[in-house]
């Protein structure tokens, strides 16, 4: 379970896909970082991630960690967004048996987990098949 303080801190990334683009080499960091992994630069401009992309690889989870047991089987994948950034997230709204590398997907706002029946509900992004 994500703690409520950490969840709150990560809202700009989880809700709005806010990333940081290196002013020197142009590399996009998501989540944003203090030092560029490409050129060690320290100057960034805020950018918003592209919201569509292509499945590069994925795995299907059959034995889930605590809190995700009701969702099995579910897919987790790495998606290369149209701006070149790679994002790891659950891929949902699809039959896991029919999911394939190269499928076009888009980011959608979903519940990620909830702290039991009385705790906070954590929202964020998952990938779903792109329309059409």
């Amino acid at each position: 379970m994500i703690g409520s303080a950490r969840y709150w801190r990560e809202i700009p990334q989880r809700y709005r896909y806010e990333a940081a683009k290196c002013a020197k080499c142009g590399r996009v960091a998501f989540p944003p970082r203090l030092v560029c992994a490409g050129c060690r630069g320290r100057e960034f401009t805020p950018v918003k991630l592209a919201q569509t992309g292509v499945v590069e690889t994925f795995t299907v989870i059959h034995v889930a960690p605590t809190g995700f047991g009701d969702e099995t089987p579910y897919a987790v994948g790495i998606v290369k967004l149209d701006d070149g950034v790679r994002v790891t997230a659950q891929i949902t709204d699809c039959e896991t048996g029919k999911l394939a590398i190269g499928d076009r997907v888009k980011l959608e706002f979903r519940r990620l987990q909830q702290d039991g029946e009385s705790g906070i509900i954590c929202y964020g992004y998952k990938f779903v098949p792109a329309i059409g």
């Binding site: 009701d70 969702e71 949902t92 959608e108 706002f109 519940r111 929202y123």
Partner: peptide, 13 residues
């Protein structure tokens, strides 16, 4: 709605 969808998620989309 799937368990990860609710009034808030659909409102956002």
């Amino acid at each position: 709605p799937t368990p990860d969808q609710d009034t808030i998620t659909m409102s956002v989309e």
